[in-house]
Each structure stands twice: as structure tokens, then as C-alpha cells.
């Protein structure tokens, strides 16, 4: 009964940890423009107000 809870709980904790570490890691300066452009290209939200 407790094994699946431990496994899922452990994986959730791993995800939270990696997410936090990834968010804390800054994007390299020379990549910021590319990231913005790619985000806009990949997202097809027609109501988006974030347009350059």
C-alpha cells in the first residue's frame, strides 16, 4: 500500500527539485532573444498580447 505512495511522492519531490533548480539557473545572455523568438513562434495563441 505504501510503496506506490513513496515512489510517486519521491518522483514528485524530484520534479519539484529539478524545476526549482532550472528556474534558478539564469538563461545565458546571448540566448535571450532566441528564447523570446522561439516562444512566440511555437505558441499559436491568437489572443496573445505579448508582441514585439
Amino acid at each position: 500500500m505504501w510503496i506506490p505512495i513513496v515512489v510517486i511522492g519521491g518522483l514528485v519531490l524530484v520534479y519539484i527539485g529539478t524545476y526549482y533548480l532550472n528556474k534558478k539557473t539564469p538563461i545565458p545572455d546571448e540566448c535571450k532573444d532566441v528564447v523570446d523568438e522561439a516562444t512566440c513562434t511555437a505558441c499559436h495563441n491568437f489572443t496573445c498580447s505579448y508582441k514585439k
Partner: peptide
């Protein structure tokens, strides 16, 4: 699902820190 999501976060962080050129070409996807 949790493994894949964690792995993607980890790989993205690793590429951000180690290789800017690789992040420029792969990281955004």
C-alpha cells in the same frame, strides 16, 4: 510522466550551465 518532466528540467538546466551554443540550438525546444 514525472520522470520525463523531471528529466526535461534537468537537461535544460544542465545545458544552460555547460553549453551556451547547445542551449541556443536545443534548449528552447
Amino acid at each position: 510522466i514525472l520522470v520525463i518532466a523531471s528529466l526535461v528540467q534537468f537537461v535544460e538546466m544542465f545545458i544552460k550551465k555547460t553549453s551556451k551554443s547547445l542551449y541556443k540550438s536545443l534548449g528552447i525546444y
